[in-house]
């Protein structure tokens, strides 16, 4: 058990921050991202006795993190948050001068576009670009064929390009958590 505790500590030190950031791209709330990262590490710890090191710890952890995040996005809890936030946003004005200034920053626009991608396209973008996994590793984590990863990646980039060109972001303000990045 002590050995497992040690491995968990190492994993948290090495990948904790990356996982929080990865999960944030999906949930847009730092507190939730940290909680889900914790859940990822708990699942990792519980499966340590079964883990045969066929994949690297990083790949293994990212696979768990993606699954934990997908589970959360499908949960009633998340849907309830979304509904209540949409309702709050509906009561407020979506376009504020501050937001428009911020959106003018190209880099921010790109982030905003990534966060608004459908989940299956966001998966490949964050794994390939942010976590620096290869196509093969991404395919292994997502359990989909390499060609599908390629196709989704191409399609995701096209969507990002379109969204940036058309300025669609101003029409589709995404749902953010209480302590949003902006």
């Amino acid at each position: 058990m002590e050995q497992h505790d040690e491995l968990l500590q190492q994993a948290m030190d090495a990948y904790g921050d990356y996982l929080v950031q990865l999960i944030y791209t999906y949930v847009h709330n730092w507190q939730t991202a940290e909680d889900l990262t914790q859940e990822t590490f708990i699942r990792y710890y519980r499966s340590l006795s079964k883990f045969r090191h066929e994949a690297s710890v990083k790949t293994y952890l990212y696979r768990i993190a993606i699954n934990v995040t997908h589970d959360y996005l499908m949960s009633w809890k998340y849907k309830k948050v979304i509904v209540s936030e949409l309702f709050q946003k509906w009561l407020k004005t979506a376009h504020t001068p501050e937001l428009e200034v911020l959106y003018k920053d190209e880099q921010q626009e790109l982030i905003y576009a990534i966060e608004n991608l459908p989940t299956k396209y966001k998966d490949v973008i964050v794994l390939f670009h942010f976590a620096e996994f290869s196509l093969e590793e991404s395919s292994e984590i997502l359990k989909i064929p390499v060609n599908t990863v390629k196709t989704r990646l191409r399609r995701a980039r096209q969507m990002l390009g379109q969204m940036l060109e058309e300025g669609e972001l101003y029409e589709r303000p995404h749902s953010k958590g209480n302590e949003g990045r902006l």
Binding site: D17, Y24, A33, Q107, I114, V126, H129, R181
Partner: peptide
């Protein structure tokens, strides 16, 4: 990679406390 750069800059404050 502009995507990677944008994401790393934007999320640098995210840490596992």
């Amino acid at each position: 990679d502009p995507i990677q750069k944008a994401m790393k800059d934007a999320y640098k404050e995210g840490t596992f406390s």
